Computed example of a mutant assay.
Amino acid sequence: SLSQRHGYCTLGEAFNRLDFSSAIQDIRRFNYVVKLLQLIAKSQLTSLSGAAQKNYFNILDKIVQKVMEDQYNPRLIKDLLQDLSSTLCILIRGVGKSVLVGNINIWICRLETILLWQQQLKNLQMNTQVNNGLTLSDLPLHMLNNILYRFSDGWDIITLGQVTPTLYMLSEDRQLWKKLCQYHFAEKQFCRHLIPSEKGHIDWKLMYFALQKYYPIKEQYGDTLHFCRHCSILFWK
């Protein structure tokens, strides 16, 4: 069970004892686990023990296979693999200068596996579902607009806007991108990076992606891990 675990000493120990293999099967926790693996890839990879590293790549393999099977959020895992491959390239080139737990040949094999995963995801073809019932295009404009306003990621809006001309028109709405900017960023941050359009209005879409380069965006997860200081327990909530 992944409900509670306690008695951790290191990141690697916590990673080994938490059952992330089950967590990735839960849609509420999948994105959070991928993000955690991405953070480890960026800055904590060398702090993992040999056993934790093996567990890390086993979980990563299961995530890739899950994405290949059900095509859920491939962009997220692509970002993770890109960060991981960049980190490994730097560590392998700097072997002797940095601490790499394990044989260098094992790390080279892992890098080759990552490159293979990246190629598989690049070749991933999204299945076209045949449905004679109601489709997205059949929904009235106000409902389609409501769907777009539910997104908190600009790339999701752009992707949905590529489905039909109507969705593209709705996805280019200035108010939609303004709301997205206001959700993720503070007003004082806007003032530092104002981007006017040719008509003199603020280009909120460009603003969103410009601000994203300088400031972190808010991240939403169904479930996240919490730590109770009183009883030293990690738990999902």
Rank of each mutant, 00 (worst) to 15 (best):
residue 1 S to E: 15
residue 1 S to R: 08
residue 7 G to S: 06
residue 7 G to R: 05
residue 10 T to K: 04
residue 11 L to K: 01
residue 12 G to W: 01
residue 14 A to V: 09
residue 19 D to G: 02
residue 19 D to F: 08
residue 20 F to E: 01
residue 20 F to R: 01
residue 21 S to C: 11
residue 26 D to K: 05
residue 26 D to A: 04
residue 27 I to E: 14
residue 28 R to E: 15
residue 29 R to L: 14
residue 33 V to L: 05
residue 34 V to P: 00
residue 37 L to R: 00
residue 37 L to N: 03
residue 42 K to W: 03
residue 45 L to R: 03
residue 46 T to S: 14
residue 47 S to A: 08
residue 47 S to C: 09
residue 49 S to K: 04
residue 49 S to A: 04
residue 49 S to M: 05
residue 51 A to I: 10
residue 51 A to R: 14
residue 52 A to I: 09
residue 56 Y to H: 06
residue 57 F to W: 08
residue 63 I to Y: 02
residue 65 Q to W: 07
residue 68 M to I: 11
residue 70 D to I: 14
residue 71 Q to T: 10
residue 73 N to R: 10
residue 74 P to K: 02
residue 75 R to A: 15
residue 78 K to P: 02
residue 80 L to Q: 00
residue 80 L to K: 01
residue 81 L to S: 03
residue 81 L to E: 01
residue 81 L to A: 02
residue 83 D to R: 08
residue 83 D to H: 12
residue 87 T to K: 13
residue 87 T to F: 03
residue 88 L to F: 03
residue 90 I to H: 13
residue 92 I to V: 11
residue 99 V to L: 10
residue 103 N to F: 06
residue 109 C to W: 05
residue 109 C to H: 11
residue 110 R to V: 10
residue 110 R to Y: 05
residue 112 E to A: 12
residue 114 I to W: 01
residue 115 L to R: 09
residue 117 W to D: 07
residue 118 Q to I: 08
residue 121 L to W: 03
residue 121 L to E: 03
residue 122 K to A: 11
residue 130 V to T: 14
residue 133 G to M: 11
residue 133 G to T: 12
residue 134 L to Q: 10
residue 135 T to H: 05
residue 138 D to I: 07
residue 141 L to D: 13
residue 144 L to I: 06
residue 145 N to F: 04
residue 146 N to S: 15
residue 149 Y to V: 08
residue 149 Y to P: 00
residue 154 G to T: 05
residue 154 G to A: 05
residue 159 T to S: 13
residue 159 T to E: 12
residue 164 T to L: 06
residue 170 L to H: 04
residue 172 E to G: 04
residue 172 E to S: 12
residue 174 R to K: 10
residue 175 Q to Y: 11
residue 187 E to F: 07
residue 187 E to G: 00
residue 197 S to A: 11
residue 197 S to G: 14
residue 202 I to T: 11
residue 204 W to G: 02
residue 207 M to N: 03
residue 207 M to W: 01
residue 210 A to Y: 00
residue 214 Y to R: 07
residue 216 P to Q: 06
residue 217 I to A: 10
residue 220 Q to W: 07
residue 222 G to F: 09
residue 223 D to L: 12
residue 223 D to C: 13
residue 224 T to W: 00
residue 225 L to G: 03
residue 226 H to K: 14
residue 226 H to S: 15
residue 229 R to V: 12
residue 230 H to Q: 10
residue 231 C to W: 02
residue 232 S to M: 06
residue 232 S to N: 14
residue 233 I to F: 05
residue 234 L to K: 00
residue 235 F to R: 02
residue 235 F to A: 05
residue 237 K to C: 11
residue 237 K to T: 12
